[in-house]
């Protein structure tokens, strides 16, 4: 699932500067499930923007709607009549949603209300962890179903670095060493042989660092 998190309202308010008729569009799929851009969040954002405008002595019209999936042109097209009369669309979808809307309504300003963070799963209510980096070349078959690209902080392909200690990552002691997990899993599967195969270097177009990322919504953690 795509995990996103809402931008700080202080960042969204300036985006609406100068617009009179705003439509906040939610998405009923991934971002609803990760509690960032569903019907509930749309209502909160729309109301917040109305209040923010009035607190600044302005009056704006903010309408709200939520559609099945913003990443599908057909669903976005169904907004044709709704967007009429609006001069700004705020997408509460993931980055793809924003772009699909922008593509379908080329004459309207579209801005994002979310930061699309990662592909992951909820570890528990209110905490999401990264499990996939969409690297485009899945090797989970060789690693016992544990992804070294996302679970190893350095995305190493051929075993752990020297910093792995007691099964924990040297970047952060809270994080499990991805390669330690892979080793343990393969051992229990009786397939340690997999590790002998040397994996060729991956072609990284961009470098990255910082290890697996995490989204935590403090107010949802209970």
């Amino acid at each position: 699932m795509i995990v996103a998190e809402q931008k700080d309202i202080a960042e969204i308010i300036p985006m609406t500067e100068g617009y009179q008729n705003i439509l906040v569009i939610g998405c009923d799929t991934c971002v609803t499930v990760c509690l960032a851009g569903g019907a509930k969040e749309v209502a909160i954002l729309a109301c917040s923007l109305r209040l923010a405008a009035r607190a600044r002595g302005k009056k704006v019209q903010v309408d709200e709607i939520s559609i099945e999936r913003q990443c599908e042109k057909e669903f976005v097209d169904s907004l044709q009549s709704t967007v009429r009369g609006h001069d700004l669309l705020i997408s509460m979808g993931c980055g793809i949603g924003v772009q699909t809307i922008a593509e379908q309504f080329p004459n309207l300003a579209v801005v994002p209300a979310l930061n699309t963070k990662l592909l992951g799963l909820p570890e528990r209510q209110g905490v999401w962890v990264e499990r996939c980096q969409a690297c485009g070349q899945c090797i989970l078959d060789k690693t016992g179903g544990i992804c070294p690209i996302s679970r190893c902080s350095k995305s190493l392909l051929n075993g752990p670095c020297g910093g792995s200690q007691n099964g924990k990552c040297e970047i952060n002691k809270e994080i499990d060493c991805g390669w330690h997990l892979i080793y343990e899993r393969l051992k229990s599967l009786g397939r340690l042989g997999c590790l002998e195969e040397i994996m060729p270097a991956k072609d990284w177009s961009r470098s990255r660092n910082g290890g697996p990322r995490k989204v935590i919504r403090e107010d949802m953690c209970l």
């Binding site: 309202i9 107010d219 209970l222």
Partner: peptide, 22 residues
């Protein structure tokens, strides 16, 4: 835990209000 939930939510909302200008 309804009350604890409410407490957290209020904290979150207070921060939101401040940024809105209330």
């Amino acid at each position: 835990l309804g009350n604890v939930r409410a407490g957290k939510r209020i904290e979150h909302t207070a921060a939101l209000l401040e940024k809105i200008g209330i």
